[in-house]
């Protein structure tokens, strides 16, 4: 089992995102790749971008590791009538390719921007 632990889920631009990955009963995993990324949901087809990556060596079968990212200034988390942009930290185990994802908010004052339609 893999788990991402974060002290909070909303971040302002340039704020440090400190996180921790905990795992148990993983015998094959050699390393973890933590990705800071955004993706879109809504009416339009999905766009996504990985903006930063941390690679961490794993010790089987159990353990925990810390990682950190800097919250980006752009693009901010927003939610509109057609498009929502969601930031997330995605953790992938290598070589298995198992993936867990934790959604976060990265926006001014740490609150998602809501776009009001006409």
């Amino acid at each position: 089992m893999i788990e991402i632990k974060l002290p909070k889920y909303s971040f302002a631009p340039s704020e440090i995102i400190n996180g921790q990955v905990e795992w148990s009963n993983l015998n094959l995993t050699k390393r973890f790749e933590a990705r800071l990324m955004w993706y879109t949901t809504g009416k339009g087809d999905c766009d996504c971008e990985v903006v930063d990556t941390r690679v961490m060596d794993a010790t089987p079968p159990n353990g925990q590791l810390k990682f950190s990212f800097v919250a980006p200034v752009y693009p901010p988390s927003f939610s509109g009538k057609l498009i929502s942009l969601i930031w997330a930290i995605e953790l992938v185990s290598v070589p298995e390719g198992d993936c867990v994802r934790r959604e976060i908010v990265v926006a001014p004052n740490g609150s998602e921007i809501v776009l009001h339609g006409n």
């Binding site: 893999i2 788990e3 991402i4 990324m37 999905c46 990985v50 995605e90 390719g97 867990v100 994802r101």
Partner: peptide, 12 residues
């Protein structure tokens, strides 16, 4: 938290 398929790998 989701245990799911990687969005970033497939999409890019």
């Amino acid at each position: 938290m989701h245990s799911t398929k990687s969005i970033s790998e497939g999409k890019s």
